[in-house]
């Protein structure tokens, strides 16, 4: 898939675990895992907004397009 999710990179930079992120964002661990492993087919703006707010980053820091 051309869109890569760099969630683990941002989580490492902010020193945040998956459990902590899941609690703060309000997403289940399984859904976060789907996102982190690149299996997600789509992401809601509300979810992206929550993640960016918690990790204090831009959407471009999490989502990357590769050819």
């Amino acid at each position: 898939m051309p869109i890569i999710v760099n969630l683990d990179v941002m989580m490492a930079k902010r020193k945040m675990s998956l459990n902590e992120l899941s609690e703060k964002v309000g997403l289940t661990l399984s859904n976060l895992s789907i996102l982190k492993t690149g299996k997600a087919k789509a992401i809601r703006f509300s979810t992206l907004e929550s993640i960016c707010e918690v990790l204090n980053c831009q959407p471009g820091d999490i989502l990357e397009y590769v050819d």
């Binding site: 997403l27 859904n31 789907i34 087919k41 789509a42």
Partner: peptide, 8 residues
């Protein structure tokens, strides 16, 4: 449905 299941 599959797409919806993999929408976070």
């Amino acid at each position: 449905q599959n797409e919806n299941d993999l929408t976070v």
